[in-house]
């Protein structure tokens, strides 16, 4: 019998193929059940008008019981958004990806939450501890013990 992660991801993929992604979100790559890439754009008026970002999801065999490792992709094509909860290495400080993760969330659910996090941003700036964090950050953001920032930013 297939593992729990691949069973669930198969269903999520099927739903994406049959129902499509919400506006502003696109599946870039889902060739396996270990890593998916999606693009993210904030629709309407926002600090990020005209910018397109990409997210990398990494799944453990225990997904969706364990949270996926989610970060913004940084390469020639994509940059991390300048946001008080997003570090310049693409790591995201969001409680739903840490101690408030719930299996109720899906890949699309996480994208929608991050989309609204960007949409509600009033001032484009990096987290105050960006430089110190990025210097010591582990490769996998799940290994970071974030102290979650104020949600109202």
């Amino acid at each position: 019998m297939a593992g729990i992660a691949s069973r669930r991801l198969q269903k999520e993929l099927k739903e994406i193929h049959t129902q499509g992604c919400p506006v502003g979100i696109q599946l870039l790559n889902a060739d396996n059940f270990e890593e998916w890439h999606l693009s993210l754009e904030v629709m309407g008026e926002s600090q990020y008008q005209g910018e397109v970002f990409a997210l990398k999801f990494r799944f453990e065999p225990q997904y969706p019981i364990s949270a996926p490792a989610v970060q913004f992709i940084i390469n020639e094509k994509y940059k991390a958004p300048v946001h008080p909860h997003v570090y310049s290495n693409g790591h995201i400080c969001a409680s739903i990806l840490g101690n408030e993760w719930s299996p109720v969330l899906s890949v699309i659910g996480v994208c929608v939450t991050l989309q609204s996090m960007l949409a509600s941003c009033k001032k484009k700036e990096r987290p105050p501890d960006n430089d110190r964090y990025v210097m010591h950050a582990p490769d996998n953001p799940k290994k970071t013990r974030f102290h979650y920032h104020d949600d109202t930013v």
Partner: peptide, 9 residues
């Protein structure tokens, strides 16, 4: 904020 070195989060 801390990052741990262990394999498990």
């Amino acid at each position: 904020m801390q990052s741990s070195d262990g394999e498990t989060p």
